[in-house]
C-alpha cells in the first residue's frame, strides 16, 4: 500500500476514534447530520437540504451550523472527503486508475436524494448515509441498538463503489451527493491543488485522479469534485503538481 493511502487510513480512523472518545465523554453530541460541541455546531449541508425538501422547514440552529460548516469548507474544501471520512478512506485507498467511460452523475444523485426526500416526506439519505454510517456505528455501539441496517447499507455503498471503480472513478469523486455538495459550497478553497511551471502536460495526474479532473486545465466546475486526495501529487514524475494554501506552496 502506498504511503499516502496509509496516512489516509490513519487520519480517517483517528477522526473516528476522536469522535468516539469525545462522544463517550460528552464533549460532543450528535452524528454527522448535526454535531454539537459546546457552542459550536456543524451540520451536513445535504441533511439540511433534505429536511428543507421533506418538511419545508429551516431553523436558526441549522442555519448557524451551516455557516460554521461553510467556513470550514472555504478554508479546507473537501479535505473532509479525502482525509477524514472513513468511507472515503476505504474508497480512495482501494482506487486504481483504469480506463474511463462514465459521465459525472453527482448532481443527479443530489436531485435523486432531494426528489425522494420530498416524495417520502422523510430525509431519505440520512437514514443510510454513506458518510454518516461509520459515525452512526459508533453511536449505535454507545446506545446498544442493532446495526444490521448500517452494515447492510455500508456494504451496499462499497459494492456500488466497486462497480463504478471498474470504470476508473471512485464513489467519492463522481457519485457521492454529500461530497459534491460540500464541493459546490466552495469550488476553489484556500487549500487546493494546482499545477506549476514543471508541468509537462503528460496527463498522468488526470489518469490517476479518482474524480476525473483534468488537472492541468481544471475549470471551477471540475474543482468541485476534488477531494484533495493528493493522488495527482503522488503520481506526477516532474513535481509539476502542488498543494497550495492561498498562493503559497505547502506540498509537492
Amino acid at each position: 500500500m502506498k504511503l499516502l493511502d496509509k496516512l489516509r487510513l490513519i487520519s480517517s480512523s483517528s477522526t473516528l476514534i476522536t469522535y468516539f472518545t469525545a462522544s463517550l465523554r460528552g464533549f460532543i453530541t450528535g452524528t454527522t447530520a448535526f454535531i454539537k460541541g459546546g457552542l459550536v455546531c456543524i451540520a451536513c449541508p445535504l441533511g439540511v437540504l433534505q429536511i428543507l425538501a421533506a418538511s419545508l422547514i429551516l431553523t436558526n440552529q441549522l442555519l448557524l451550523a451551516l455557516a460554521t460548516t461553510s467556513l470550514f469548507l472555504l478554508v479546507a474544501g473537501r479535505f473532509f472527503c479525502g482525509w477524514m471520512c472513513p468511507t472515503g478512506a476505504v474508497v480512495h485507498s482501494t482506487h486504481r486508475p483504469r480506463g474511463r467511460r462514465w459521465g459525472i452523475t453527482a448532481p443527479l444523485a443530489i436531485i435523486t436524494v432531494l426528489v425522494s426526500s420530498f416524495l417520502a416526506r422523510l430525509p431519505v439519505l440520512c437514514v443510510i448515509c454513506p458518510v454518516g454510517i461509520p459515525f452512526k456505528l459508533v453511536f449505535a455501539y454507545i446506545f446498544g441498538i442493532d446495526i444490521y441496517l448500517l452494515v447492510l447499507a455500508l456494504a451496499g455503498w462499497l459494492v456500488l463503489n466497486a462497480y463504478i471503480s471498474r470504470k476508473g472513478f471512485s464513489w467519492c469523486g463522481t457519485l457521492c451527493p454529500v461530497g459534491y455538495l460540500l464541493g459546490l459550497i466552495s469550488p476553489k478553497p484556500l487549500l487546493h491543488v494546482s499545477t506549476n511551471a514543471n508541468c509537462t502536460r503528460c496527463r498522468v495526474c488526470v489518469l490517476s485522479c479518482p474524480s476525473n479532473i483534468n488537472i492541468p486545465e481544471a475549470k471551477l466546475s471540475d474543482r468541485v469534485r476534488c477531494t484533495l486526495c493528493l493522488k495527482c501529487l503522488e503520481h506526477c514524475r516532474f513535481r509539476g503538481v502542488e498543494l497550495r494554501f492561498y498562493k503559497k506552496k505547502i506540498l509537492g
Partner: peptide
C-alpha cells in the same frame, strides 16, 4: 416528526435521565 427528524441523535445523547433510545430496525426502517 419523521419528516423533520434528521436522526442526528442530539436528544438521545443529551437526555438527562437516559430514557431516550434510538428505535431499532425491528420497529421499522422509516
Amino acid at each position: 416528526f419523521l419528516s423533520q427528524c434528521t436522526r442526528c441523535g442530539q436528544c438521545i445523547q443529551t437526555c438527562v435521565t437516559g430514557t431516550l433510545v434510538p428505535c431499532s430496525l425491528g420497529e421499522g426502517l422509516l
